[in-house]
Nucleic acid binder design. Structure first.
Lengths: 235, 235
DNA sequence: GTCTATAACCGGATAGAC
DNA sequence: GTCTATCCGGTTATAGAC
């Protein structure tokens, strides 16, 4: 499997606007929705309220976004772009793997911070295995792929040599790792998100060390077993 | 921290019935709801349908269960009792840690199997950090505690010596590990839940091996760091 | 192709009478 | 404890205007 660098913007619009004016209306509805989500949370924001504040008819909101959930997908795409942008300077500057990884993960939780409360209620629908919003769904695969590519870049641009047998799977594993961290962050209500930061600091050390321990003979069986597991799970 | 054996049934009724008749009505509504959930899934079962089949008024259903979600809590308690019952013979028979752990985990996914589809849609509400249904909530702590105690028993009753520094945290870690497996199981739609079984088989080996590697000096730093992380996360 | 207005359906939840 | 009536909001449908 080859991981390419992120190539551009992914827009998975449910009903793409065809004209400049339509595009404008669509953007207006989305940004209004996100404002309201941030202000009052997801559940307490009604489609009627979104339409009203955006100055459009309820039906028009549904013309651009099939459902309320669909607004979330647009949010994902936007959020991912912000993550990319925030990661860029770190990846351009740092060469040490630990620093790169830590930077990218901090970028994730920092850019997401304004949406912390929102993300909590959001996660509810995202967690449903049958929801198109869940990160493993086909509908999410463009974003998932882009996100994994970011970790591929994090690895490849570093001075650390990644062991051969890990090279293929590691971007996927790091993406999963990020998912776990985000899950933790969603549940974290400590002041200043202290616990999440501790979690990142400690686990980045661990991850780096585990990669480093690649060639210790004693660990070969564990390593083999993990890789075998991953292969098995791919069917 | 001391882990005791599970002591009895946990009933966290939202609106406990005060009379025998009330108790009966409550039980009727619950069993009807679970039947319907299994038949059609959670989302496709309306409160109206539950009330109708149970032969009570809609308002009456809400008298006993504050919300639709609340019916789920009752399901959890029931499901946990089944897990306990299915684990008992294994824990009484096996002394090898790997066998015990594997048995308990297989018991979990096997007893849950009839509710697989249901669990998927369920997970959605359970995932919400602010929902009382989420496994980390105060409302869930009795069940969580009982569940952790089951893993404490799994460890203590085995012939494997658990390293000192792990003894305190390991039941919690194993409970988390089971949560991860259940999450995997929820997403697993392979035939006969093949992937989940592979996951259990492989990871039980890993877990046993990691516990066994407790005293390898090379790994001491990693181990220290993991334990430090756990301490930090407790605030 | 965009957009408005309005009415209606559906199901979770609540109020208040009996 | 149990009921009926009602609210509320996501969603759909329709019919038409620019």
């Amino acid at each position: 499997m080859d991981w390419e660098l992120p190539s551009g913007v992914v827009t998975s619009a449910p009903h793409t606007a065809k004209t400049p004016k339509g595009e404008q209306t669509r953007a207006l509805i989305l940004s209004t929705a996100l404002d309201l989500f941030r202000e009052r949370g997801y559940d307490d924001t009604t489609m009627r309220a979104i339409a009203e504040r955006a100055g459009v008819a309820l039906g028009n909101a549904y013309y651009y976004f099939r459902s309320k959930e669909n607004l979330i997908q647009a949010f994902y795409a936007q959020s991912h772009q912000e993550h990319l942008a925030a990661s860029r300077p770190i990846l351009d500057r740092e060469k040490d793997l630990k620093a790169r990884l830590k930077g990218v993960l901090y970028a994730k939780v920092t850019t997401s911070e304004p949406y912390h409360r929102f993300s909590g209620s959001l996660f509810k629908t995202a967690a449903d295995p049958h929801s198109p919003l869940n990160p493993f769904s086909p509908e999410s695969s463009p974003t998932r792929y882009e996100s994994t590519a970011l970790f591929a870049e994090t690895l490849l641009g570093s001075t650390t040599r990644v062991p051969d047998d890990l090279r293929e799977e590691l971007p996927n594993l790091l993406w999963m790792y990020q998912m776990g961290l985000v899950l933790f962050w969603i549940y974290d209500d400590s002041a200043g998100r202290r616990r999440t930061h501790a979690m990142i600091d400690h686990t980045v050390e661990l991850v780096a060390r585990i990669i480093g321990l690649a060639n210790v003979p004693l660990l070969a069986p564990i390593r083999r077993r993990v890789l075998q597991l991953l292969r098995d799970l791919k069917q």
